[in-house]
Design a protein around this nucleic acid. Structure first.
Lengths: 151, 151
DNA sequence: GCATATCCCTACTTTTTAGGTAGAGATAAT
DNA sequence: ATTATCTCTACCTAAAAAGTAGGGATATGC
């Protein structure tokens, strides 16, 4: 299970990315609208800013907006930011590789081999799908005025 | 990252499954050979027994052996036993579904939709690959006497 | 039938992480 | 000057992870 923190980050990011460009959302507004504890969300948004994903404006009429385009921000990148390495074993992480303690031989480790299969499959999805994709993908969405026209 | 407990369980299971049928391994022996804290391993083996995966014999010359054949025991089954649901979101778990708190609409939830893709991919692997597969798959293994004959 | 080696069971401890809360400072608009 | 925002740091609490501990049950072999 992913942490609440990561889930909140996704909710907030999706909300901010859905705004028209140049339009900023306040942390208090997002918190209220998505039932996220306000002070906790502030920390999360700050992390997203420090990671170069969001930009912020202070003072009255301040708020958060996307710094990078939503379709350059993958689910994997955000998840790593809040959960650390996604790999099921330290020896499978590319970005923060560590040897398993007491590992005798990586190439002969059955556990590593099997989890590599599973991790490859999920990583391929998480690192390719972006916040932008998620917002544009209407395949499961109910009929909107626009969909009806298209259909 | 998977827990140490689960990793120990896999190491022990692979060791027990690799034995000739009818041959039991003791918890102390496995613990020593694989550098696992003994009393901790005992709990783990007991869990595997209660789950119907291992059988045990007590007293002198006792030990643990497979109850079910190794190729009927998937990585997913063992992982669920020690880590709980594998789904990244409660609303994606089939075996222990729960609604996300504050969920407005599951079919319109972008987070759910994207994580479903990733989870499907990894679940397909974890629930299909078995302990038996892992032991028989020699594609990455170095040349053994048997391999040399086969090759 | 006693010593010993094993599994079995339960309770406890320690460390880390998750999930926040709290409060004050910096900055910008009005 | 006031107010609404972001920014920073410290703290708190509950739960989980990772073991430790100690004894009880049972089978074997002498």
């Amino acid at each position: 299970m992913i942490s609440n923190k990561a889930k909140y980050a996704f909710r907030a990011l999706l909300a901010i990315a859905a705004e028209p460009e140049g339009n900023a959302l306040t942390s208090a507004g997002i918190a209220r609208r998505h039932s996220i504890p306000h002070k906790f969300l502030e920390q999360i948004l700050l992390d997203l800013k420090k990671a170069g994903i969001l930009e912020s404006r202070r003072g009255k009429s301040g708020g958060y907006a996307m710094l990078r385009p939503a379709d350059t921000i993958s689910f994997g990148e955000v998840l790593r930011l809040f959960e650390g390495p996604l790999a099921p074993l330290p020896c499978l992480s590319r970005q923060s590789y560590r040897k398993c303690e007491d590992c005798v031989s990586e190439t002969n480790c059955e556990i590593r081999r099997e989890f590599a299969r599973s991790y490859d499959a999920s990583r391929r999805v998480l690192d390719s799908r972006t916040i932008g994709d998620a917002l544009n993908d209407t395949s499961y969405a109910p009929l909107t005025a626009e969909n009806r026209r298209a259909g």
